[in-house]
Design a protein around this nucleic acid. Structure first.
Lengths: 246, 246
DNA sequence: TCAAAAGTGTTTAGTTTACACCCATGC
DNA sequence: GCATGGGTGTAAACTAAACACTTTTGA
């Protein structure tokens, strides 16, 4: 205890950053958005999660929103804190430190990063990047080498997103467009859970939920029977959820 | 983006602490362990969550374990990271800042705190405190005034512990002694979920689980029919769980 | 013999799973 | 007319919920 107090007398302040794991579906694969990391006069040295150190008077949540705004140009998504990674070993790789010190013009030792997680908006254009930067979707099953511990962060995020969908299915509908077909919804679940669902049972359950309402609109121009469009009714959803506290 | 880089050039380093929410059951109520906070020559000014700033080369998880070791004297518990609270407004209260600056002998502006959550070991003595400090269990439904945002941290933790128990029932058995009666198990669930469970259905389910095994031992000296003791079988538990990924 | 808690089964309702065929459309 | 995906129902298996009495023990 004495020892503790002594050490606390000269407290240690690490850097604090936020990193964002934006998951989406590309070519029927669960994918994550990564930005290119450049070093030495724009020679690309691989990809990383979009992220930033936080500002002095900036909330953590706001920092994450800022990072997303800068990356994909919009923030209407369930962006939520997931986990904080602060391992001393995170900065074990010399190259990562070099890059970071060049970026921040500061001597950097340890960085505690608060990771945020979200599902992207389906099909929304991702085009708000700095001219010098590029980004790409990578299937989570086929990631490139990543700096720091970004690889394990992504892997843990994929597990977590399933828990989120189970606890709060509404986030699925932030991913989907406001009108969607039963097939789109089912496919989304299949990709997130990485397993098949029976068509009939899925449809039946979807109808029972009560907050997915059919519209009069149908697909047009498809080379097969046109599918009906459905909408997510948030008011019904909230009512149904809030009465489950019996 | 330019703006961002500029601000990052002079990065901001907040203090980083860990706080621990240790939940337990006292007098049949879900309770949280709080330590007394002293100021001005040992005048107590209320209670707070046990916590500490982190050391330069200390892992976050290790800092949380250290805080628990110092507080309750043991660390055999499912102590896991829960959420990081970093609001600028956390340090809005002048009195909190005064206390903190006295404790740390440093000018403190913002603190980002990583909160850890655990169930205490049932009945284990809590006695490893600094002579000058005292601690107490408070029912979570009846908390005293707490500094910073500790009150809402506790409230969120109570919800979270239920999610944890659902996802990983094993943590219940770290709370219970190695031999426990069906009644103890049921009562524990009832208090954590704050609702009653049907005795017969509970017993039936308990037997079906497969990882709660009866022993030959019975209670002694009780003024009523003696209850059987059961044990949690971790090997069976892990086997049963790992095959659910079908 | 009484008070106090332990232990035990059955019925009903609800939920989940498995499974196969016809329908509408564009080409 | 054929390829493509949309849409539908039923039976069986399983899970969850409701519900009351007898047993054991100490005082």
């Amino acid at each position: 205890m004495e020892n503790q107090k002594e050490r606390i007398s000269s407290p240690f302040c690490p850097y604090v950053s936020v990193d964002c794991v934006l998951l989406g579906i590309n070519e029927d694969k669960l994918s994550v958005l990564l930005v290119e990391r450049k070093l030495l006069e724009n020679n690309a040295v691989g990809y990383k999660l979009p992220g930033s150190l936080i500002y002095e008077t900036e909330e953590l949540d706001d920092a994450a929103l800022r990072v997303m705004k800068e990356a994909v140009g919009y923030t209407q998504m369930s962006l939520r804190q997931f986990h904080t990674f602060g391992s001393v070993a995170r900065t074990a790789n010399k190259e990562d430190i070099l890059w970071l010190e060049k970026e921040s013009h500061t001597k950097v030792t340890r960085i505690v990063t608060v990771v945020y997680l979200a599902l992207s908006k389906k099909g929304k254009t991702v085009n708000n990047l700095d001219k010098n930067e590029t980004m790409r979707w990578f299937p989570v099953e086929d990631l490139p080498d990543l700096p720091f511990d970004h690889k394990s962060i992504v892997e843990e995020s994929v597990n977590e997103i399933r828990n989120w969908v189970e606890r709060e299915p509404a986030i699925i509908y932030e991913y989907l467009p406001s009108k969607f077909t039963a097939f789109q919804l089912r496919r989304t679940y299949e990709i997130i859970y990485n397993k098949k669902f029976d068509v009939r049972n899925f449809q039946k359950k979807m109808n029972l939920l009560g907050y997915i309402v059919p519209t009069d609109e149908m697909e047009v121009g498809v080379p097969h029977r046109a599918a009906r469009y459905y909408r997510f009714n948030k008011v019904k959803y909230n009512k149904l959820r809030s009465s489950l506290n019996k």
